[in-house]
Nucleic acid binder design. Structure first.
Lengths: 207, 207
DNA sequence: GTTAAAAAGTGAAAAAATTCACTGATAAAG
DNA sequence: CTTTATCAGTGAATTTTTTCACTTTTTAAC
């Protein structure tokens, strides 16, 4: 199945919202409500969900549990995945302790930093290592995802190491774009770009 | 001028890349290179830049400084903007000290937290206040942007306060979608959704 | 039991975004 | 001074994405 990026984005948001509803014990949800939660229209949501193929009519909407399970199976979101964080500065350590990853099926099983001092000082319940043992730990623990939170100038180098060690996807917080081979999935979160996006929108709106 | 979200995103990325090139002292850049940096094709980049209207042929490509200035003027990215951060937990304090905001024209001029204890303990060069003085400080300092880094359950409440206090845009790190009026620009960064996006992509690729 | 209302499913239409193919401009090379 | 290569500009074509209009299903109300 070929999915466009906007479709995948919506599906991830919808899945997250379903998870939330499920935890709250809510049983039914309409396409309208999912639309609101995912920032799309109800038509688009229904089209996205129709990728699942089956029909599940009900005048109360979709059954939260069932839809969540089906989306999870079709798009491989049910499987737990192991991730690591490279770069244990302010942001890296904040991510290391971000408990929601665990709840959401992403298990942070290692942190890495170049500085031995920093590693020794860190107080965290997650194992931390020097970057020099990155390849070894990734292989041993079966880590699929790498999160990069190092300073801009080392980001590419770290990405190369992660890829060589066998991760399949990278989430980078570095503002500079990283080059990765086609079979490695890559996404970057750039705080400045996000703020600029907002600023452009509201300033253009004003005229 | 009406701009689509993908266009704005690309423009923000291109602008950031131009800024980087400029700082490195590089004078010229081709549409191909900008395409690579922004994740688009050269055609799309040229279309985006053609929004600026003027023609600037040169067989070396665009002049970095000029293009950056023009993009900045047209899309209001040259103006410095003031922002605040609400919620000074791990993530909030990491953002408070994220120096790049300043370099990139976003001045973090205040931090807010509900806990007075936390405010007193914090070591930062940025002024921090209790949430109770949010409206006052935002008005006094002319803050246009609010960054929300509070726990999920308080996000909507904080957003409402920010909007009432007069911010024009909100960047939220809360996983749950926030409701805002149409004239307020809103973007959320959801770490789990981002990891899921990557996971869907690489797992679907495998078959 | 019949009717009405609520909601999903879906093929077609519309809209939007991207790519292409070609033009024009510039600068470097010979 | 002419030629050639490089690169941006742009209207048209294509592709993709979204929206619409209508159908079908289910459930609740009377």
């Amino acid at each position: 199945m070929k999915l466009s990026n906007p479709t995948i984005e919506r599906i991830c948001k919808i899945f997250g919202y379903l998870d939330l509803l499920d935890k709250k014990g809510i049983e039914f949800v309409s396409s309208r409500e999912l639309a609101k939660a995912s920032g799309a229209t109800e038509y688009t949501v229904r089209k996205d969900i129709s990728l699942l193929g089956a029909s599940r009519h009900d005048r109360k909407g979709y059954k939260v549990k069932i839809l969540k399970t089906e989306l999870g199976e079709t798009f491989h979101l049910n499987k737990k995945r192991k991730a690591c964080i490279v770069g244990l500065g302010r942001l890296g350590t904040a991510l290391l302790d971000y408990e929601k990853f665990q709840e959401d099926g992403f298990e942070i099983v290692a942190g890495f930093d170049r500085s031995i001092n920093k590693i020794e000082r860190l107080c965290t319940h997650i194992d931390v290592f020097p970057v020099s043992s990155l390849a070894e730990v990734i292989a041993q623990r079966g880590i699929e995802l790498g999160i990069i939170a190092v300073p801009q100038e080392s980001a590419q180098e770290v990405a190369d190491k992660l890829i060589e060690a066998g991760v399949k996807g990278i989430l980078s917080f570095s503002p500079e774009k990283i080059n990765v081979p086609k079979d490695i999935m890559y996404l970057d979160i750039d705080f400045t770009s996000s703020l600029r996006f907002i600023a452009v929108k509201f300033s253009m709106g004003e005229g």
